[in-house]
């Protein structure tokens, strides 16, 4: 299920460089220009990957999220930053399961946005069955 606010008291996410050079961190923060694939050898020990969205128009984080899920990452994948209600349905499809928006979102709007799409045309990282598959059973 999707959580909208992350829990307190968790381990702070370290930068990708710090993570790659220190072996005990279990939470990492990925900036838009950082290669998500650098984390693939370490997914087992990660509990949280926080993907930064400094500006909502910068869509690199969507690819980062899918790449991580496609590589089998099963831990928490959080979208942090300029995360707006109109983006979260797409973010969820790309594999994000938690959201840490800089500006609080109206929970009713969030619920409406996530419930908006009855089905989806294309496969992504959320496990939804694409429409073409529904059509052909």
């Amino acid at each position: 299920m999707v959580e909208h606010i992350h829990s307190d008291g968790e381990e702070p996410a370290v930068t990708l460089d710090a993570f790659l050079s220190q072996s005990n961190a279990t939470a990492v923060r990925l900036e838009p220009d950082e290669d998500a694939r650098a984390l693939i050898p370490h997914l087992d020990r990660l509990a949280l990957i926080e993907v930064a969205f400094p500006k909502f128009r910068d869509g690199r984080g969507y690819s980062s999220a899918r790449i991580l899920r496609e590589a089998g990452y099963a831990g928490e994948l959080r979208a942090q930053g300029d995360v707006l209600v109109d983006q979260i349905a797409y973010m969820k499809r790309c594999g994000f399961d938690t959201f840490a928006p800089e500006k609080a979102l109206n929970p009713a709007d969030v619920e409406a946005a996530l419930a908006r799409w009855p089905e989806h045309y294309q496969g992504a990282a959320d496990g939804a069955v694409p429409i073409w598959k529904l059509r052909h059973g």
Partner: peptide
């Protein structure tokens, strides 16, 4: 067209 409609990864391209 169907593949690209509401594509979740490619709606905020450069």
């Amino acid at each position: 067209r169907q593949w690209s409609s509401f594509h979740p990864e490619f709606s905020y391209l450069p």
